[in-house]
Write a protein that binds this DNA or RNA. Structure first.
Length: 467
RNA sequence: UCCCGGAUAGCUCAAUGGUGGAGCGAGCGGCUGUUAACCGCUAGGUUGUAGGUUCGAGUCCUACUCCGGGAGCCA
């Protein structure tokens, strides 16, 4: 066997042995009856006089090792009995199928090598903690079961996104992080000193993707986005990740189909490869299994009518929360949806709902108008089920130079900064469309997480940048 | 930025204006099948900060700081 990083070892994955007799816990079922070594950390420990139960985690899972007083050195037995949580250690033992063990397997331990005895004051105890305390210890909280499961699912979602676009003729194009001016001119940006001039951290790669789509046809970018808005809710981060596909010759209908296909693919992939992690999170799988195409589609105007009807019903509800929700909803055509509207609307479906053709006035300047009704933009938002809100926003882009020029003037945006963007309409302009998918919101929805901050390893939020 | 709630042991929380407690965690001891084990004992406190009211403040008042929830904005 070659070094653990040798290509064939990684490629086959038939056995994740990385050195000598080391085995990953997730692979134990392949080694029943064998003597193996696990290298990891002490997750938990219980002792009962002459027998000790030692839970070891190695990143791939958790396994319980059984240590009998008579089978090991007495000094070692005693030392283990006092070993603090999170101490690093290697254990050697025989793999045994054991019905009583959570993972189905157990180790009869024969040797233990302690690499470092952890301090005794590991702050995350096996008990309830407040979210503020856990966030302050995010660097350690990552080791706990739920954050561990959530970030594994996040990785699976990211991989699914890339696989989907890579296999549908989209080329990965990285958008810049430093930008010379606001992309949309609406949100507050983080300003940075860029040599002798001011620059901003990107809030979206979309405009750059429009340029790239004119070169490659179908493209997507995947990267961080930054918003300096003082949002303080469970649905906001100042730094979040977004995937943004853009299609030359794509129209609103194409965008809606693409969004539906992508979300279906992501949910399928997570269901087939991350069931164990979803179980750790106590996620209701039937809610995810319901996510099958076609997704319901509704126009903004129809949605407003539905909201008005539902609002009137809820205002008569005996439940105070329901009445409060209804009071927050909009009452007439023309306004953008707020959180209560989205909750009320998405609550009527068991899968993501596509809301299309919003009033142009509440959308970004680059949206193309609906030729059938000039008040409307050819755009679509996708609202996730179960109140997780908007996970996708997109639509068809304005392709007329004159139209864009007047919108930029109307919004008071600096024309020079957008000259390159206008060039795209001067040299071979075509209909084109795309959208942005918020990764953390998607992770939150699929994991059933309460807050976005659980869905990114080290969240950046209003006034919070530690650790 | 606005609205609401909170800050007491390492953590999660009790305590009518009248001598600050419990569970978990930690330490010591016991227990051969524990699953956030169990049983006994021990240690652990400038009640967020600064003022004020009162014979007396964890408790009432004011300001500030920090934390949580929500709104707007958005992915």
């Amino acid at each position: 066997m070659g070094a653990w990083w040798a290509p064939q070892t990684i490629a086959t994955q038939s056995s994740k042995r990385v050195s000598m007799d080391q085995v990953m816990i997730s692979d134990l079922h392949r080694h029943v009856g064998e003597t193996v070594t696990i290298r990891g950390w002490l997750h938990g420990r219980r002792s009962s006089g002459k027998i000790q139960f030692i839970q070891v985690r190695d990143g791939s899972g958790i396994v319980q090792g059984v240590l009998m007083k008579k089978t090991v050195d007495e000094a070692l037995f005693k030392r283990c009995d006092a070993l603090p949580q999170e101490s690093s250690l290697s254990v050697k033992g025989t793999v045994r199928a054991e019905a009583r063990a959570p993972g189905g397997h157990e180790l009869s331990l024969t040797e233990i090598e302690i690499h470092q005895e952890a301090d005794r004051d590991y702050p995350i105890a096996p008990k309830e903690h407040s979210i503020g305390f856990l966030m302050e210890h995010r660097h350690l909280w990552l080791r706990s079961r739920k954050p561990h499961a959530t970030l594994r699912i996040r990785a699976t979602i990211v991989k699914a996104v890339r696989d989907f676009f890579d296999s549908h003729g989209f080329l990965l194009i990285d958008a810049p992080i430093f930008t010379p001016a606001a992309c949309e001119g609406t949100t507050t940006l983080f300003e940075v000193q860029y040599f002798d001039e001011k620059a901003y951290l990107t809030q979206s790669g979309q405009l750059y993707m429009e340029a790239a789509a004119m070169a490659h046809g179908r493209v997507y970018c995947f990267g961080p986005a930054f918003r300096a808005e003082k949002s303080k809710t469970r649905r906001h981060l100042t730094e979040f990740w977004m995937v943004e596909p853009e299609m030359a010759y794509g129209e609103l209908e194409d965008v809606m189909q693409l969004a539906e296909g992508l979300l279906t693919f992501i949910v399928e992939r997570v269901l087939e490869s991350r069931r164990e992690d979803l179980k750790v999170l106590e996620r209701d799988l039937s809610k995810l299994e319901a996510v099958r195409p076609p997704f319901p589609r509704i126009s903004y105007s129809d949605a407003v009518e539905r909201i008005k009807v539902r609002r009137a019903e809820l205002l008569r509800s005996p439940d105070e929360e329901q009445r409060k929700l209804a009071e927050g909803c909009l009452t007439e055509w023309g306004g953008d949806f707020g959180a209560p509207d989205e909750t009320l609307l998405s609550g009527q479906y068991d899968r993501p709902v596509l809301v299309h053709r919003y009033p142009a006035a509440v959308k970004a300047f680059y949206m193309k108008r609906d030729p059938a009704d000039e008040r409307l933009a050819l755009c679509v938002d996708v609202l996730a089920p179960e109140g997780y809100g908007e996970i996708i926003g997109g639509g068809q882009r304005a392709d007329s130079l004159e139209f864009l020029e007047s919108r930029i003037a109307e919004h008071g945006l600096p024309r020079e900064a957008f000259q390159w963007y206008l060039d795209l309409r001067k040299y071979g302009s075509v209909p084109h469309s795309g959208f942005g998918l918020g990764i953390e919101r998607t992770v939150a929805w699929i994991c059933g997480a309460e807050h976005l901050r659980e869905c990114i390893p080290f969240p950046r939020m209003l006034y919070k940048i530690y650790p």
